[in-house]
Nucleic acid binder design. Structure first.
Lengths: 231, 231
DNA sequence: ACCTGAACACCGTTCAAGT
DNA sequence: ACCTGAACACCGTTCAAGT
């Protein structure tokens, strides 16, 4: 929107060893920049969760005034967008690739996607409501290309991608939201047990407790791929 | 937590036709109650979205002081929990059921679940982060029972339920988040076209535009059921 | 070009008090 | 038992001003 940029001013000139004045932070921080803001936002989100990210607190962590952020960033929404995409970089298939064929590649891409989001538990539930940044688009592009090469017809491609995307998102969001402390988990199942005459089946199967999330994820993914892809 | 209840005081006694005093609302509202609070919260959420629900605004809609709500409700979190579950009641399979077998029942249950959430677009993205109320548990119980009767082994039951749950959640959340105005949609694809050399495949397939969400949902669901269930 | 403090219009919730 | 207003400790953001 605005003309604000943040690209080229990294030269930082030679600051001539600023003599620290009383009351100031001794080790003067590097100047503000989009990169620093985003990196610190990710740290803050990792440490405090979505509700912990506050423009004021973020500025505090950066050693700047709260309003200084607004020079580099339009608003809080943009901070979310940038932090999210920053966390979703894809480094490509592992060294052992090539030999494993397209199916292995797809599975790797989706498991890596999930793993990236699980490393930053705030990211999964944030993603669906935010703009698609370059890293997200890059992952979609790569997935698309691989499926296409695997023989998925153009007419079926979008449906296949969205089915997989939906599945990965749902699995990750659920996984994060049920990753409670053991006490919370026990309490929930406890509450359930108290109502066992109303919910006998899920009480008996201990639905809320013993879940092999990773195994279940992989199994469902395989079923989807069986259906979505030819051959 | 607290000893607060809201069950039995519905008698409301005979209020003796309160003479409306100047400055007061003429038609005096019915007394506050959990039910009224939740119903109004749902209306407000439907109209204004998640960010539009504010304790103060909610109280305004109810014609009461902001703090009055806290007698009936612990905090804002609980309002969310209650509003969410209120919206997820399940009325059971249609009249024509019985003849359609367990697979038809499962499909109906999950499509109804999705439809209920789509009717209240705030609900889908809220659900994963909230406590499971009786209506949600009821749906899980019914799904569980049906799958069990269909022959899914006890050992596979939880994985099957969570796979379906995840898929439904992911599909619904994505669907809601991409249900932008046409201009937004066009703008997004526009931006993509500008980068078409970086994302040629998804640009060519118009991934962000022509999506048959409902068809894709049903297709992926069928694939999952094929894999998850015996026979 | 970059950063700042004061100020505005909001929040959720505690508390002591009213009826 | 139920409702209330004042007050507290926060928010995101605008604006006019500093360097």
């Amino acid at each position: 929107m605005a003309a604000k940029r943040s690209g080229a001013q990294n030269k930082r000139s030679q600051r001539k060893s600023v003599s620290p004045q009383a009351g100031q932070a001794l080790r003067s921080e590097p100047p503000l920049s989009r990169e620093r803001i985003v990196a610190t936002a990710v740290e803050l989100l990792d440490a405090e969760g979505v509700d912990g990210l506050t423009m004021r607190r973020l500025a505090d962590c950066l050693g700047s005034g709260a309003m200084s952020l607004y020079w580099h960033v339009d608003n809080k929404e943009e901070v979310f967008d940038l932090a999210l995409d920053a966390v979703l970089e894809y480094r490509g298939p592992p060294q052992t690739a090539g030999s494993q064929g397209w199916r292995g590649e797809v599975v790797h891409m989706l498991e890596d996607w999930r793993a990236s989001m699980l490393r930053h538990p705030w990211s999964a539930s944030l993603l669906p409501r935010r703009a698609l940044g370059p890293n997200i688009l890059g992952r979609l592009e790569m997935l698309s290309k691989t499926l296409s090469r695997a023989g998925v017809a153009d007419a079926d491609l979008n449906a296949a991608i969205w089915s997989l995307w939906n599945y990965v998102m749902g699995a990750t969001i659920t996984r994060v939201s049920f990753d409670l402390s053991d006490e919370d988990m026990a309490a929930a199942q406890q509450r359930l047990t108290g109502l066992s005459e109303r919910y006998p089946t899920i009480e008996r199967s201990r639905l809320l407790l013993d879940n092999d999330w990773d195994g279940a994820f992989r199994k469902g993914l395989d079923f989807l791929l069986d259906g979505l892809t030819p051959g």
